[in-house]
Design a protein around this nucleic acid. Sequence first.
RNA 1: GGCUCGGUAGCUCAGUGGUAGAGCAGGGGACUCAUAAGCCCUUGGUCGUAGGUUCAAGUCCUACCCGAGCCA
Length: 506
Amino acid sequence: MDRAYYVTTPIYYISGNPHIGHAYTTIVADVLARTSRTFRPTFFLTGTDEHGQKVANAAAAAGKSPQEWCDELVPRWKALFAAYHIEYDDFIRTTETRHVEKVQRVFEHLRESGDVYRGKYEGWYCVDDETFWLESKLVDGRCPTCGRAVQWISEEDWFFRLSAYRDRLLEYFEHNRDWVQPRSVYNEMMVFLREGLDDLSISRTSFDWGVPIPGGGVIYVWLDALLNYITAIGWSEDEARFRTYWPASVQLVGKEIARFHTIIWPAILWALSETAPEVVFAHGWITVDGQKMSKSLDNAVDPFSLADRFGADAMRYFLLREAPLGSDFSYSEEKIAQRRNSELANDLGNLLQRTLAMLQRYRDGIVPGRKGSSALGGRFEPLPAIVRARIFALRFREALEGIWELVTALNRAIDERKPWELHKQNRADELDAVLYDLCEGLRWLAILLHPFMPERMSEMWRQLGTPERIDEDWSSSLRAWGGLAPLTQTAPAAPLFPKLDTIAQT
RNA sequence: GGCUCGGUAGCUCAGUGGUAGAGCAGGGGACUCAUAAGCCCUUGGUCGUAGGUUCAAGUCCUACCCGAGCCA
């Protein structure tokens, strides 16, 4: 049995409604988790980050308590993930008791070990970004990131002795050159480390929406948030479960929060005598015309509307096929429609349709027996291992390109072997061989594409009529070409991806 | 101001010193099982700019320009 696989998304800060970028990160995690579940224990965690002054302010502006605000927003995130066919194993909220009590336990633990100490903090603080700024970095006295006013904070705080972990971090980075990806982010973190680290203030006294600290104040929201990755899997509570999943196999983060996850987070883990995650992958942003989506620009796209109009599975396919995971991606609705029509409707959907139509016409929809060996089988038997490797390397584009070679090969096989002529000439054995190859190829496609497009591939599976599960271990379901049982009764074809009118660009 | 990454065909990208590639889009063709889909053929690039190293540079070096980002 392979070691368990643990994948996390960031927990999303619920100061507003979710956008397509949140769906994107979570879809990536879902593809990894669905692929992994076919052959090993897997845990996929997502959730919401609910503490901090920004949430408290947003709630106050809406005339609600912070808890009420969060309770009303969380269902929207869960609805988003449901709309995109995302199957997480757990959804953690940082306001849940199971999280809060462990965060307090971490604090006590670090105080006892000396990694947390009392000190005085003075400086500029941006409430919206939950970030401290040096005076020199301010732009016209305002936050350089969001442009909003900053506050002068002067208080007795608790500090985390981050500086003590600098050498260990440097050594870790030097010996694990792929642990932070992509390389551009790794390089920037190395530069940051070389410049030196200050201790980190981890308490706040100016507001109270957070995890309470004994003796007063609340814990800095970033420390609170980072800990979700271990509190959700039973740290300090269920040792066996925690050891099964930790360290995380892949932690997906946005590039703007890479520093928290690759410098502060490992240091905290080491202070707790735990190990750092195996890989932190910082993905880029989805942009509209090159601009990051934001409420202030009013260019955010409603992710529910996109799923409605283009189909959730088509959106999943589009994002993983077209967006380069490690850098920004400028999306457009024209591109989505283009991919959906040419690759999903024309290449794949039509392949299923024409195959089932011929099977219906020539063989009453019943899969014929195998007739000898298959050149297609010989060519594509290595494919599952290739696809799996590319998925876990987070090279989704290449995984899908590999799968599409099979789509193209099946379409080509129809044109080259001309089943309609074989039928007219009563060459039954040859016709059977072609039809079997096509059905078997479609079965492979449904299995290989299921992690990417779970709902549509389940429909394809239904039409193919095979009784097995679509998400079995590939090492059995795709062990060899020929796994599809003869005499399987297929269903009448129904378009998998009806073609959309191409959207005119203004 | 220092640094990182990127700038290759209309679009999205691959190419990690040895005669410029893929998919899509565009053009042409033969076919008909099919969501006028698929298949075959094909137009198209002075590889951001200028120098340099090398028998040979998209690939290495230097400077600069543009884009994104990290830090001060």
